[in-house]
Structures are given as structure tokens and as C-alpha cells.
Amino acid sequence: MKPTAAPTPTLTTTRLTLRPRGPRDADALFATMADPAAMRWWSHPPFDSVAALRAHFAADGEGPWRAWAITETGKDHAVGFVAAGPKRQGGVAEIGYLLASQVTGRGIAREAVAAVIEQLFGEGYRRVFADTDPDNLASIRLLERLGFVLEGRLRGEWQTHIGVRDSLIYGLLADEWSYAPSGHRRHGGA
């Protein structure tokens, strides 16, 4: 039996509402998740139908990962998502994220990912990490802006739809976290 995810709470920031992602978000996110450029750095190839994406999102909550749809406050149209899953060693979570190209450059990814990190550290996680392709410069910039530290390179780590790829591991410890999604700065501590 697969472990089930902890409940996915709704998170709010100054400009965003992050709510549990579900099959209904497939329509809003299909254009992005069918786009080869947007999906280049994902381990999953672009989706070929809304139905396939809807089925993928329907599996949310069946395993230990949780996924939040990113919406602008007052709107219910998903413009991206953040996902997080615990690792077997306990106290450690991995994150992933995707944003629709039409809303990039506005700080939405940073605000949304920060909200999820804040949630994870508030739940008692001691470390959050992300695994990104060395050529995914936008993701690397985001992680570094949030305070993540490059911890290493895993050579030939992923067999993906674009071939075998290396992976960069970026990590952030709870006592290093100093950004709060509300715009207020925290100073250390979980």
C-alpha cells in the first residue's frame, strides 16, 4: 500500500492563493504542460491531451507527495503549481514547481515556492531540497534567490524524454531560512 500524503492546506500570500491541485486544474495548465519548451526540464514528457493531464492530477494525494495549484488571489485559474514530497530519511522534503510562461517575470514562482517552504519548515521539516537540470537557469536563479545552496552534481542521474541528464542538488536547512512569503523577513529557526 502506498503512503498517503498529509493534507494539503490552502496557503495565502500577499498576491497568491495556493490550494490543493486537482483534475480541474488540467484545463488551465494544459497549454503549459503540453509545451515542449515548458516541459524540457521535467522527467515527464509534454502531455498530449487534457484527459491525460487530468488523470495525472487525479493521482494527487495517492502517494506521499502534495501539490498546490498557484492562483492569483481572487481568481481560481491555476497559473502553475508547487509540489513537495517527504524523503524516506525523515525530516527532509523535495520540492518541484512549474509556472505558465505568461506569468513569468512577476515574482510569482518565488512567492509560491517560498510559501510552500514556509509551510514545510512550519511542519517540522529540517531540510528542503530541489533537483534541477544544470541547464535550467531560471530554476537555478530561483533556488539561489530563496537561499538554497548548491550541494552537488549527480552525473547521468535522469533518463528523460530529452536523454540522460545530470542533476544539480540544491538544499536549504530550516535554520538558514530567512524569507517569509508575507514579505516579512524571518531570522533563522524553523
Score class of each variant (00 low, 15 high):
residue 2 K to T: 08
residue 4 T to A: 11
residue 6 A to T: 05
residue 10 T to H: 05
residue 10 T to C: 10
residue 12 T to S: 14
residue 12 T to M: 08
residue 13 T to Q: 05
residue 14 T to L: 04
residue 15 R to L: 02
residue 16 L to T: 02
residue 22 G to S: 10
residue 23 P to F: 04
residue 26 A to R: 11
residue 26 A to K: 09
residue 27 D to I: 08
residue 27 D to F: 04
residue 32 T to W: 07
residue 36 P to A: 10
residue 37 A to F: 05
residue 37 A to D: 15
residue 41 W to V: 01
residue 44 H to T: 15
residue 46 P to F: 06
residue 49 S to R: 10
residue 50 V to K: 13
residue 51 A to S: 14
residue 52 A to H: 11
residue 53 L to Y: 09
residue 54 R to G: 11
residue 56 H to Q: 13
residue 59 A to P: 01
residue 59 A to R: 15
residue 60 D to V: 15
residue 65 W to E: 12
residue 67 A to R: 15
residue 67 A to Q: 13
residue 68 W to M: 08
residue 72 E to L: 13
residue 73 T to R: 15
residue 76 D to V: 07
residue 78 A to P: 09
residue 79 V to W: 02
residue 84 A to R: 01
residue 87 K to Y: 11
residue 89 Q to K: 10
residue 92 V to H: 12
residue 93 A to P: 03
residue 94 E to H: 08
residue 96 G to N: 12
residue 100 A to D: 15
residue 100 A to S: 15
residue 106 R to M: 00
residue 106 R to C: 00
residue 107 G to D: 02
residue 107 G to M: 02
residue 110 R to H: 03
residue 112 A to W: 00
residue 114 A to P: 04
residue 121 F to G: 07
residue 123 E to Y: 03
residue 123 E to D: 15
residue 125 Y to I: 02
residue 125 Y to H: 12
residue 125 Y to P: 03
residue 127 R to A: 08
residue 128 V to A: 03
residue 129 F to T: 05
residue 132 T to E: 13
residue 134 P to C: 10
residue 135 D to I: 00
residue 136 N to I: 04
residue 138 A to T: 14
residue 141 R to M: 05
residue 151 E to L: 07
residue 153 R to C: 14
residue 153 R to T: 14
residue 154 L to F: 12
residue 155 R to F: 06
residue 160 T to H: 00
residue 167 S to W: 03
residue 168 L to N: 13
residue 171 G to Q: 06
residue 172 L to N: 08
residue 173 L to H: 09
residue 174 A to S: 14
residue 174 A to V: 10
residue 176 E to N: 11
residue 181 P to F: 04
residue 183 G to D: 08
residue 185 R to P: 01
residue 189 G to C: 10
residue 189 G to Y: 09
residue 189 G to S: 14
residue 190 A to N: 11
residue 190 A to H: 13
